[in-house]
Amino acid sequence: MPPRSVRVGVQSPFPICYSVAVTTIEGFPEDLARLDVDARRAIVDLDASLYPVEALYGAAYVFIDRCYVLLDRPAPQKLRLVLTPKSLDGGEPAVRALVGELANELVSAAYRHQIAQENRARIEAVTMQAIAGAMGPPTLDDLEDFDFTDEAFEDPLGIALSWEEKYAKKAAPDAAPGEDAPEEEPA
């Protein structure tokens, strides 16, 4: 079926600069993807329950060398990608190809996200072994250059606390009132 031209008011994330000359893209349902002819950009709407936001980022990022990419959430259960090709070569067929590639990349990214969660332990173990095996132990020069002032790390077991800090806190409930109680601002 040839693309049909319609003029509809699209709820755009960029209402001021957006035109309203919108056509469907051959092969894609109108409520999924459409072409803003005047602004030469494709608008792709996604069901947020199907694509985790990580997949949206992963897929969007793949296109930023070829397109300008804008994301939005036009409704709570909807995600929107707006792709503007940097090059105008190829016209509408090129935009259609980009939308097709985006759709494939979204599926791939969503599935990859799921796989990464399922296989996290194996992926991390192999990655650590590969990198650690290649790097080897640090030399004294490496240690000298190491930045130990990095941001604080979580310490749920209190390993990094001094003996005094650790046991002073534990002793607090039994301590005499006022002795170990934290200082508070007066109400």
Partner: peptide, 11 residues
């Protein structure tokens, strides 16, 4: 003027 709107859930 052009207006860009970055959704807080996404940016």
């Amino acid at each position: 003027m052009r207006e860009l709107r970055f959704h807080r859930d996404l940016y």
